[in-house]
Structures are given as structure tokens and as C-alpha cells.
Design a protein around this nucleic acid. Structure first.
Lengths: 265, 265
DNA sequence: GGGTAGTGTTCAATATAATGAACGCACAGT
DNA sequence: ACTGTGCGTTCATTATATTGAACACTACCC
């Protein structure tokens, strides 16, 4: 993971950056976010990222000064400023506000657990959660990531991509992450579902990420030029889920998606 | 806010940074987070931060590459990576998980709107929100900031600081931000309340940030060595609020605070 | 104890990122 | 059409951040 043998595919910085210090600082943040414990030492970072210790030290000083990281003894951890910045990003997404407002007044959805998520590469990031149904409490939190193949929103979102791009991301024989016995196993299985999703206009997840739980999801037509791809999902217990309830929820999800897609609401 | 008249108090970089590019990149993110529209042009940033355009251009390229910002035409906005990083920070705070678990099973709190916040300089940042009471929906979101003088959690948190530090942050004649007629006006008024808060062990906010709304809050004894200062608050409508209900909520808040303070809780 | 392996820090030399003036472009005004 | 003002980009130069080897420190182990 640290040393690439011969080729320099992605050794350190792939090519030269216009501001290497910034690129490396970002790599430090990523490394911290990716590390299981969330805490690494200067030496750890220096080793993993292939940055000399002295340079790493400088980076950390600057990052600490900006409160993007904190240090507790030898350990480095993400800083609270990141919460602010993440929140600043979300607060600018009008869609989130609209999402809450709609859920509250929707006949069926208002009693359910609804989420809005965005596509980020091969993952989905949850942006906000509406909980009208105290019985079902999700363990996932805002900002959490989930592979697209494992959730209804993920499938709904990649169904919007061009076949070409999907094929590139998910070759037929690609092994997918597995969480339950019903999780999709290969790129081929995933792609097979997309046709139906496009036709029906919504995606269904049958205990593929959590046993006992089903999900319905739709994607939101991209508003504006370059906004993120957004999706909406409802989560329900398989035990209490009924076809006709599903039909109604999909109807409301689609309505919300339509209204989020039209800038003038 | 942009131009300092004569003195160079905080002009550009106060002193030299060990990695100026990083410090400036952080300044760019701050500027974007602080800007009302959330979007600025390269020239705007260059002007506001006093960074040459060519350097700014380099910074933006690196930041964009790290997906810490996005560009839509000429406009620069915060990037989605920040949501991930903010979430990564929060996911490492065990206190947040514990907070949810406790709220769900607490006799009184489980039906109320409860929040956990952290002290960040002169502000409080909301980390998580439990909504047991669908009637009261807060407009504030996770990650939002609020001046300490305007909310019960803020007051509870600074009551834990040494008098010396409080006096430095809030001189008697310091004007405080005002949101309602009942908002505290001066540093002196704020400090006067701290004595009672320390004695009682909780803070009360009587329509000081929102008319019609009251808040109760306690601070959490700092767990571990260098963790953030955490606080808990319950929000209620003044119309339906009763003394005895308040007493019970404070009791539960204190219990939660105690358990959050004990690592083995 | 004295050795070893691990921290993070220091400092002078050099490779390199920051700079600002000039450039190309797009747009609005007259 | 022609200017003026705004944008972001380019490029050679210089100031500067990065570097690695040596250092100081702690903790552990035999």
C-alpha cells in the first residue's frame, strides 16, 4: 500500500500538483478519515503517505492551526472545523430544506423513515434523515457512506448514469461488497437490475444491506448545471411492509423528486 | 469585515506559517463557508484574502482536485468531501452514539427535543439532535453555530471555564449579539448568570434566542484528556413548559451527562 | 544500566512553489 | 464596431518551502 514496486501509477502524488502542500494536506485528512481508530501519529502519516517526517510535521502544524486537525499527545485526529465546513456545505443545498418540509406534510411519508443521499463515486452519502416513525431507528448517520450496490438509493442513482460509465465502474465479474445473504454479488447482477429500475422509475432493495429491512428509492433529476446527483429513499421493516403501502410511498417519493428537480419548486 | 483600516492585526497571515499553502487553503474554505451565498469567484477570494490571483488559481486547482471545493463556471463552492470529513469526525465521537441510545430510553427526554453540542471558541456547534417530540421541529441543523451567550448550552459550557478566561472573552462592556428582546446584552449580564448556573448545575434560557422557546442545558465533564467540551440541551415551548417537567428533564440531562463523562459509562 | 526502536524536532542547502506583469477572453456600454 | 472592465490563465524570475541527516527525547527490554 505504501511502496509500488516498479510502476509509478499512483505513487504519492500521481503527477505534480499546482500546490503540493495542499494536496498532501488533503491526503492527511483522508488518511485520518479512513483510519479505523481515527487517530494516527506523525510517523504513521509520514510512512503511509510517503511524505518526509519533517514535511509532515510542517503540514500538521498548519492543519492544526486551521483547526482542521487536533493533536492529543502524539496522536493526530480530525478537527472540529470539519464539522462546521461540512455543515456549511449542507446548509447551501436548498434541497435538504425542501426535503424536510415535504416529508412533514406528506400523507404517507410523514410517518416513515426517509433519507436524502448524494452520489459520490461508487458510494452514496446520506445528507439528511427524516424520522417520522420512531419504531424504526437507523444506525446510519448523516455523512455516512454506503456502496451503491448495497442500497436502493445507490441503485436508483447509478441507473441514471450512461451504460458506458456503469460498465466501466462495474465489470460483469467485479466482486461487490456483501453485507447479507441477499446482497448482490457481481457487477452483472447489479447491471441486470438497472433496466427494471429505469422502466419503473424506482429501485427496490430487499434485505440487501440489513436483514429484515427493505428500501424504496428514486433519483432526483439534476437541478442546475453541476449540482450533485441526489436520491431519496424510504426504509421499512419487511415484516410490516405491504405492496400497496409501497406503491403510495413511491408515488410520494416521485413527487418530492420532481419538486426538488424544479428550481422553482 | 474585509478591509482593516490601518493596523495589520490579522492582515493576511498573521505570522509566517510552516506551510503557507495549507494555511491559505484553509482560509479559502473558511471564506466560502462564511460567504452568504456560499459561492465566490477566484477574484473574490484573491481580493478578500489578499492572495495574488495566480496563487489563488493554484490553490483552487489543488483544492478542487481533492474535492474540497467544486467549481461551477467561475464560481467556487465548498465540495462534498467536507461532508465526509465532518461525518468522519462525528463518527469518532462515541458520545454521540451514547447520546442517541440514552435519549431513546429516558422516561421524559425520549419525548422531547434534545441536542448535544460542543464548545468552539465563542460559539457552540450542534453535533446531533434527537427529536422525540414531532410538534417542536428545530430549524437549526447539525453543524450549525450559535454564539454562547444566546443559548442555554452555551451558558452551561462557559460556566465550566475559569473566571479568568471568561473575563477575557467577555469584558463587562462587551456588546453581545441580540436575537430577541430577552437576549443578554453585555458581558456583565452574561457573567452574572454563571454563578447561579454553577450552583444549580444547569443553565436556563428564557426566550433569549427564539421567542416562545425555552431551553435547559447541562455541561458534560470532559472525558479523556483533550476531548471537546460537550453540552446537552432540551428545547421546549414556553407555552407548555412547567417547572416540574423542567426538574425532571434536568435530572435526566444530568444523568446522561454523568454517563457521558465516564468512559466506562 | 546500556542498548535499541520508537517518537517528534531542528537546521542549512537546494529544489520548488509563489509571484506579478502581460496575455487572451467575454461581456456591457456608448 | 470599438473601447473599458471584469474574468482566469500563462510564464520566467525570485523568494521560499521542502528536504534528509543528525539530534533530543521517551519507553521498553534484556
Amino acid at each position: 500500500m505504501a511502496e509500488s514496486p516498479v510502476a509509478r501509477t499512483s505513487e504519492g502524488l500521481g503527477s505534480t500538483s499546482p500546490a503540493p502542500a495542499v494536496t498532501r494536506a488533503a491526503a492527511v485528512l483522508d488518511a485520518l478519515a479512513g483510519s479505523p481508530a481515527g487517530r494516527l501519529t506523525l510517523s504513521d502519516l509520514s510512512r503511509e503517505l510517503g511524505i518526509p517526517k519533517s514535511s509532515t510535521s510542517n503540514l500538521l502544524l498548519a492543519l492544526e492551526d486551521a483547526r482542521l486537525i487536533t493533536r492529543q499527545g502524539n496522536e493526530v485526529a480530525l478537527g472540529r472545523k470539519l464539522v462546521e465546513l461540512g455543515a456549511a456545505y449542507l446548509s447551501r443545498l436548498d434541497e435538504v430544506q425542501e426535503f424536510y418540509r415535504y416529508c412533514e406534510q406528506a400523507p404517507t411519508l410523514s410517518g416513515e423513515t426517509v433519507r436524502i443521499a448524494m452520489l459520490d463515486g461508487e458510494n452514496v452519502i446520506y445528507l439528511a434523515r427524516y424520522e417520522g416513525h420512531p419504531a424504526v431507528r437507523l444506525t446510519s448517520n448523516i455523512g455516512d457512506k454506503m456502496p451503491v450496490s448495497l442500497c436502493a438509493v445507490g441503485k436508483a442513482l447509478i441507473a441514471r448514469l450512461h451504460d458506458h460509465d456503469v460498465a466501466e465502474m462495474f465489470p460483469d465479474d467485479r466482486q461487490l461488497p456483501v453485507l447479507t445473504p441477499k446482497s448482490l454479488r457481481t457487477g452483472a447482477e447489479l447491471k441486470a437490475q438497472l433496466v427494471a429500475i429505469r422502466e419503473q422509475g424506482y429501485a427496490f432493495e430487499d434485505e440487501e444491506s440489513t436483514t429484515g429491512v427493505v428500501c424504496l428509492a428514486v433519483s432526483v433529476p439534476t437541478r442546475g448545471a453541476h449540482g450533485p446527483s441526489l436520491g431519496l429513499s424510504v426504509t421499512a421493516l419487511k415484516a410490516t411492509y405491504s405492496e400497496e403501502q409501497g406503491t403510495q410511498m413511491v408515488k410520494e417519493l416521485k413527487e418530492l423528486a420532481r419538486s426538488l428537480g424544479n428550481p422553482m419548486g
